[in-house]
């Protein structure tokens, strides 16, 4: 077995663009779910709206790249308002129902035949990222031992890590402030917060917008790293991976989503590299698993891992067990 490649791929996924996109999405989801207690099951829609906002502005309408970014961000804000206005006055579970449905509506709109003139239908859109890559200062790949990144990926990673830094700083500053105190109090009991004179609906809306905008940054990174958008990448399983990442890292912890995303993608990349290799070398008999099935097994193991995590360490990597045990409502 070629351990250099197996470990090389795994180590790369600790820092690569996929991990960054999921980390940014999970930072946003952590604001919703971890801090505010909003059950948003449609985070993928925020990424999709941002990615398509960028791609359609540039590829379909030929507008400049920076305008695409602005429209992508504005799209995330509008989506938050559309989701929030009808549901934030209602009980928390309604938001879960509406967001999961809205995410599917958004995805189906992107892939619908009647809109394919603008969205590219199920094929999606390409050639919107040229202006972005023109700014690429890297000309040679980065090789450190067994880890290897090409110049394009390095450029997306640079921007991505900068965005992670900015996002974490915003979350850190906001959550240790009186604003964050109100947000966390809403997670505990919104009627109590209301009785103390805070406009709970307004705070929940602010949280929905903040988390949605932070998530939309992940949408940009995801689209730019692939230089393409495709509707089916923004499905519900995207959101469920984000939940896995948030819980893995520890909900309501500033660094939780980033560390969660790193561990999630490291393990997945490692399993996906080691299983096919083990099968071809004959360490795993083919009656148990063929190389084509190995990919699915990776996700089965991730699911089993999440179950074990929730049973034995519900607070995640960074969480405080005492705090989780108090959740006896």
């Amino acid at each position: 077995m070629n351990w250099d490649i197996i470990f090389g791929v795994s180590l790369e996924s600790l820092f690569n663009t996929t991990m960054i996109a999921y980390a940014l999405a999970a930072i946003g989801l952590n604001v919703h779910f971890g801090y505010t207690g909003l059950l948003n099951f449609g985070q993928s829609a925020f990424l999709g709206v941002a990615a398509y906002g960028l791609a359609m502005t540039v590829a379909t309408f030929g507008a400049p790249f920076w305008l695409g970014i602005v429209i992508g961000l504005a799209g995330a804000v509008v989506l938050a308002l559309l989701l929030g206005i009808p549901t934030l006055r209602l009980r928390a579970d309604y938001l879960a129902i509406v967001t999961i449905a809205a995410a599917e509506i958004v995805r189906l709109l992107f892939r619908s035949v009647s809109l394919s003139e603008w969205t590219g239908g199920s094929d999606g859109l390409q050639s919107f990222s040229d202006d972005f890559y023109k700014l690429n200062p890297y000309s040679s790949p980065l090789k450190i031992g067994i880890v290897d990144f090409d110049p394009r990926e390095l450029w997306v990673m640079t921007i991505g890590w900068a965005l992670i830094g900015i996002s974490l700083l915003i979350v850190f500053l906001a959550m240790r402030s009186p604003w964050g105190r109100v947000i966390k109090a809403i997670r505990e009991d919104e009627d109590a917060v209301r009785s103390l004179g805070k406009n709970v609906v307004s705070y929940k809306m602010q949280s929905l917008i903040l988390g949605g905008v932070l998530g939309s940054l992940g949408g940009f990174i995801f689209a730019l790293s692939r230089a393409a958008v495709q509707p089916d990448t923004y499905g519900t399983e995207f959101t469920f991976y984000m939940y896995t990442i948030v819980i893995l890292g520890g909900a309501a912890r500033v660094f939780g989503p980033v560390v969660g995303s790193m561990i999630f993608w490291f393990l997945l990349a490692f399993i996906n590299a080691v299983l096919p290799a083990a099968i071809t070398q004959g360490y795993i008999p083919t009656w148990l698993m063929t190389p084509t099935q190995a990919g699915a097994v990776g996700y089965i193991l991730v699911g089993a891992g999440l179950v074990l995590l929730l049973i034995y360490r519900p607070q995640g990597i960074f969480g405080d067990r005492k705090e989780v045990m108090l959740d006896g409502r």
Binding site: W179, V182, V193
Partner: peptide, 28 residues
């Protein structure tokens, strides 16, 4: 309705009215 996962002192601070830091941009 005690806010369980907030400290006692943070429960109390929450009651203060007209807090500038409770506005999002100013909180940063």
């Amino acid at each position: 309705k005690a806010l369980s996962r907030l400290k006692v002192i943070d429960n109390m601070r929450l009651g203060g009215t007209g807090q500038r830091g409770e506005k999002f941009w100013q909180s940063l």
